[in-house]
Nucleic acid binder design. Sequence first.
DNA 1: TCGGCGATTAGCT
DNA 2: GCTAATCGCCGAG
Length: 203
Amino acid sequence: MPLKKEILDLPFYTQHSVVNVAKRLIGKLLVTDIDGQQSVCRIVETEAYAGAQDRASHAYGDRRTGRTEVMYRLGGCAYVYLCYGIHRLFNVVTGAENTPHAVLIRAGAPVEGVEHMAARTGKAPSDPSIARGPGNLTKAMGITLQHNGLELIASELCIYSDGCPVEESQIVSATRVGVGYAAEDALLPYRFYLKGSPHVSKA
DNA sequence: TCGGCGATTAGCT
DNA sequence: GCTAATCGCCGAG
């Protein structure tokens, strides 16, 4: 008997603590509907980026550029940007308007539509790395720069809870990946992942 | 205006 | 372990 899927509501995204949102997104379902092809994965790894005060964030020092503008919106929309000129990275904007908080979705475990993920990535459906790592996840799910700024409501890009609770003891916190340039902020425990999952990056 | 680097990844040594 | 791929942003000049 499958549990009922419920769309995450606005209060979830607009809550004060971006770190709490990052933690609670573990175990939620990311759903894309691209050209009528539905793909679903369970989020197993996230990272919080705490706005203007966080050296690792694009919005550090309150930098408002064309790229970061979407981070300043009210929580509940997508921030997708190009990294290293090659990879698209998907973030969930959180918090109040004008507070540039975001959660990077780093990895997922396929739930439905894995055949579409395989077609997009050229990997075998059984390959645990199919949506492992932020660049691989967007590729597998079909997320592109066109989704930047899109609200996470029932459309082609959305996040659901299926009521399946994740035990607190199963969520590991750690330092973020690839942010060595952020000085002391690189030491913050802003990365969360599902303990023991083969779909988590840098195990 | 230009040079360097980044919330990465795959492939090769 | 090292490097190429490739583009937006920023600091130096």
